[in-house]
Amino acid sequence: MTKDTNSTHHNEFEKAEHKDEMKHQVISFAMMIIFTIAAFAVVATDAIGKYFTIPIILLLALVQVIFQLYYFMHLKNKGHEMPALMIYGGIAVAFMTILTFTTIIWW
C-alpha cells in the first residue's frame, strides 16, 4: 500500500463524499421510477394518441438509461473515459443495427 493514508480524518471525508453521491443516486432512482410510471401511464391510458406515444416512451427510456449509466454505473466519474468510449462505440453500432432492421428488412 503506497498511496493510501491511515488518517481517520480522511476516511470521514470519504464517507461524507460517498454519502453525497448516494443522495444523487437515490434522486436518480426516484426519477427513473417516475419516468417508468409515466411511460406505462401514457400507454395504458392512451392519452396522447398512437403516433406521439412511441417517440415519447422511447425518449423516457433513453433518459432513464442515461441516469442508469451515468449515476448508477458511474460513467460520469473520472477514470471512465475508456469505458465511456467503448459504450458509445457499442451504442453507435447498436443504433446502425436497429436502424437497419427497422428500415431495410422489408421493402
Binding site: V93, T100, I105
Partner: peptide, 12 residues
C-alpha cells in the same frame, strides 16, 4: 420468418 435478417447479421 425473414431470411434477410441472417444476411444483415452475417454482414454486420
Amino acid at each position: 420468418g425473414n431470411v434477410i435478417i441472417w444476411e444483415h447479421l452475417f454482414w454486420i
